[in-house]
Design a protein around this nucleic acid. Structure first.
Lengths: 261, 261
DNA sequence: ATCATATGTACAATATAGCGGACAAAAACA
DNA sequence: TGTTTTTGTCCGCTATATTGTACATATGAT
């Protein structure tokens, strides 16, 4: 429920937490690293990291790759992730929805979810424009920086939102401070309207459209987004939103469902 | 390196190992389970399992699903697995190879790897026959039961093979005992010939073809397989093997390579 | 050559994680 | 109704996992 980890300083960390901290760090870096580098960059004791890395290696959770004793995420994680994907079988419908969006709008279409208390792009279909707009799949981005973020936390109470999002994430990439109350007001607006659009605050040339993909309980488990050049986005606003809503409706008809093994 | 886990009885298990034992168990079961059920079925102390499950839940490694407090693999694992897949980008080429095999042979084609000390089908393309032959993706199968198994351990010494494969895995599904020395002889034969084929020992009506997908170091990191009805397989043996070798060669030209993030 | 840094290993101290067992509520069953 | 099984929580004991420190080697800078 909550995302505590380094509650207080000076305490011993639990092996499990450290282990997943290492895995998350490698995912974020997206490259193989030496145990030493990992220890230094996540601020963990070297001896602990060496011990954990060796444990994870022997379990297939990590693998040697890139030489020089560097390690990266291992095959076992792929298998576990595939099992998740197979259970909550959103992949097929998701690709179809992105395909449809790309066809209809020629813009970059994304399927986004929360990863813990961050936002992340799970799948993407690049647009057909000469200058394509794209982002990195799987990178963790502060929730307040994104249009989708407004929708993905809309099921929480105001207080829960503030508890959920790390305070420093309200500091925007340009350095400006986004007042949490302003953000919450936008969340409530997005909730009422069932959509959120704005000129991206991560860059200066894109406009973002986001609509929720709702599950039975009614909250947004994911979002479908379009990322467009500002002028195109504003010119085609109505049509793009219609496309998004249609695609999202298609996804909701075939919601994440268990599948026989 | 080694696959020790429950080396001796009466010892305390390490949290990390227990945790991944739980994850693997859920993957194998392919369904959400209550912590209590998990504890009972993997033979772990209930209090430990409850503690670990709660930890994993709070990390997003496990998720509540299926009601009644049942848990299954979580979204975080999907993200980590996707990062692995993105780094070792075999997916695209792999799908292409399977597509090609399915087109050329109309038989069920599989891409297989080791998962720890078991064999597993990573990706599959079902054949175009009226009665399709298929297996479950991601299920762990004893290495000696499969044609691919002969190739996947061929880089090990005889002794390492015996250390690597759990002794009980030489007990075939029908109950017969496969003499390890016989298995090793078949491994060496497969290594020399660069292929292995046999009438499946898992069922009574299929013939299996396997060829290695080699990486730089020269050992088989994976295999490509065809699973065919026995008569068809024997009738088309030469052609099928040619198709497999061609597809494997295509995969090796684009070996698992890191990709810029 | 000397010094500094990066990398991996070894080990002992102690905070604590894993475990067994007690307890209780709920569900299943008779 | 009473009885048994299932499920989840709580708590104290102690084996041990985490950690700081020291050591060893390789690499690079001056």
């Amino acid at each position: 429920m909550d995302a505590v980890q380094d509650e207080a300083a000076g305490k011993r960390a639990r092996g499990l937490d450290r282990a997943f901290e290492i895995l998350d760090f490698l995912r974020q870096k997206r490259q193989a690293l030496k145990p030493n580098e990992i220890a230094a960059q996540i601020g963990a004791p070297r001896s602990s990291v060496y011990e954990l890395v060796n444990l994870l290696l022997s379990n297939g959770i990590l693998e040697f790759t890139g030489g020089e004793g560097r390690v990266y995420l291992g095959r076992k994680l792929y298998f576990l992730g595939a099992a998740y994907e197979n259970h909550f079988d959103f992949t097929r419908e998701c690709e179809a929805a992105l395909e449809q969006l790309a066809d209809e709008t020629r813009e970059t279409a994304q399927f986004c979810m929360l990863d813990g208390n961050k936002y992340t792009v799970v799948r993407m279909r690049e647009g057909a424009r000469p200058f394509r707009i794209s982002t990195d799949i799987g990178q963790s981005v502060p929730i307040p920086w994104t249009a989708s973020g407004r929708l993905l936390v809309a099921h929480l109470s105001d207080q829960d939102i503030l508890n959920f999002i790390p305070p420093q994430d309200f500091r925007l990439p340009g350095g400006e401070w986004l007042e949490p109350q302003t953000f919450i007001a936008e969340v409530r607006q997005a909730e009422r309207e069932g959509l959120f659009t704005f000129n991206s605050i991560v860059d200066s040339f894109t406009h973002c459209f986001a609509v929720p993909v709702r599950v039975e309980e009614g909250h947004a488990a994911a979002t479908l987004c379009l990322v467009t050049p500002r002028d195109d986005g504003i010119a085609n606003r109505g049509r793009y939103l219609d496309c998004l809503k249609k695609a999202a409706a298609g996804l909701e008809h075939a919601p994440a469902r268990p599948r026989r093994g």
